[in-house]
Design a protein around this nucleic acid. Structure first.
Lengths: 250, 250
DNA sequence: GATGCTAACGGCACTGCGTGCCAACAGCAA
DNA sequence: TTGCTGTTGGCACGCAGTGCCGTTAGCATC
């Protein structure tokens, strides 16, 4: 009789389906409450499960680690982004696709502001959680880079261009997210992201009339930045780099 | 008599100064050897200290954790970069300073190729070590961004520009480092970094004659990239962004 | 040479995370 | 009732990392 539980009444009811998500949620809520009240390090898994009335072993069946309870279903989120990239229109500008994906990521934070803000507070205080978040952000960046690398596959310096572009988009996303978090979720994050992507020199908006063909490009003005004293190779590279921003040329 | 050590003869010699570094090095070597031979996870701290003939407790006096033995004196390296940025010429182009710093970081890898390559092999196999490296790379990026933020302090969008530039430089550095590691340390990493920074559209080279003054800028040609259908605000931003690349205008 | 001080080391015990294993139990089908 | 499956709790275990204390080497001092 392993029912030697000091906790008398517990709904040991069979959780075939919906019960699992309820319990998972209950564990997460209890954990975050404790983390906020007595600190992350001072909170043991024992403390968490005690409040929910469940065994310590069960906790690790719902979360791989104590840290994961702070970033639940992060894998699913990442998988969603991967899927979004994979099913993206092959004709669309890769830059635009990635920017959309960044917007999707931002959306996951905006969808539940109170949780995001609470997590932000936690990650600010606990270094191990901060590190964990850095790692998950890097996962997104990797996924972006992989997608872009495929798009650029035939061009020169595909790998470098993909890495740099992914880094730029992610850095911009993080900048906006940070501002949103620091504002307590007040500012218009979507608008800020659009503006920031624009400021960062990334083409996000679809050109007004054209759909990516080369026919309308006569209206475009190409401007680059270089010195007349620069070597010819540099000039070539810079112009190539500039041309990449136009759809249909990548 | 807690000298109940099964290990009979051990040089319990007094290590006042040089002995510390020797022991630290011996521990690191023993650890890396074991990691390579029987795997990181399968190697316990007990195993490591056993070969060196030292107590388990002592290991943690030399390394804060089992992971740190793979990335020794990473904090010092970071501190060196911070110092390099702080004592940089205030008149120099911030972009150039950061690129130099990235070169310094690359140099720390090139200085001891066999260790870097061994560590690369380890981080490829062990996810926790990979995560750890991602975090330390992010530390550099943060330091770069902080420096650039100060330089851009008076300009518009200083924070965003600093973050994006830092991300770009770091991504470029990582790209080159990765290629160097994958080549087994064969390729010319320095040259590759210069070329990559150039490809990524970053101004690294000092202009041939001028020293950053405005007097010589008549020789410069300003070229940007935008669409004629873009709103006026976008045009203004893009031109501003282009002008930033010239020394004396940031 | 005896004494005291400091720094490093070894060992021990302890906390806490994460895991493997097993018995118990609910739900369902035959 | 019997068998099968999935979930749970408890238990034991390995291991990382820490606090504590006794011991020892090295050095200065009397």
């Amino acid at each position: 009789m392993p029912e030697g539980n000091s906790n008398g009444s517990r709904s040991r009811a069979g959780r075939t389906e919906g019960g699992r998500r309820r319990l998972r949620s209950a564990l997460a809520v209890a954990a975050l409450d404790l983390f906020a009240s007595k600190g992350y390090d001072a909170t043991t898994v024992e403390d968490i499960v005690e409040g929910v009335g469940v065994g310590r072993r069960t906790f690790f069946r719902y979360f791989r680690s104590k840290e994961e309870v702070v970033f639940p279903d992060h894998d699913e989120r990442l998988a969603e982004v991967v899927e979004e990239l994979e099913r993206s229109d092959a004709d669309a500008s890769p830059m635009r696709v990635v920017c959309r994906a960044a917007e999707t990521v931002l959306e996951t934070y905006l969808a539940e502001p109170e949780i995001s803000l609470k997590r932000f507070e936690l990650t600010r205080q606990v270094s191990s959680l901060r590190d964990r978040e850095i790692v998950s952000i890097d996962r997104y960046q990797r996924v972006f880079a992989r997608y872009l690398r495929r798009c650029y596959a035939d061009g020169p310096n595909a790998d470098l261009r993909a890495s740099v572009t992914a880094a730029t988009v992610v850095a911009t996303h993080n900048h906006v997210l940070r501002r949103w978090l620091k504002s307590g979720g007040e500012i218009d994050a979507h608008g800020a992201l659009r503006a920031a992507l624009d400021d960062a020199g990334i083409v996000d908006r679809e050109p007004s009339g054209a759909s990516g063909g080369a026919g309308e490009s006569e209206n475009d003005v190409v401007i680059g930045v270089l010195r007349t004293s620069a070597p010819a190779e540099t000039v070539r590279r810079r112009i190539e780099s500039a041309l990449r921003e136009f759809p249909g040329s990548g």
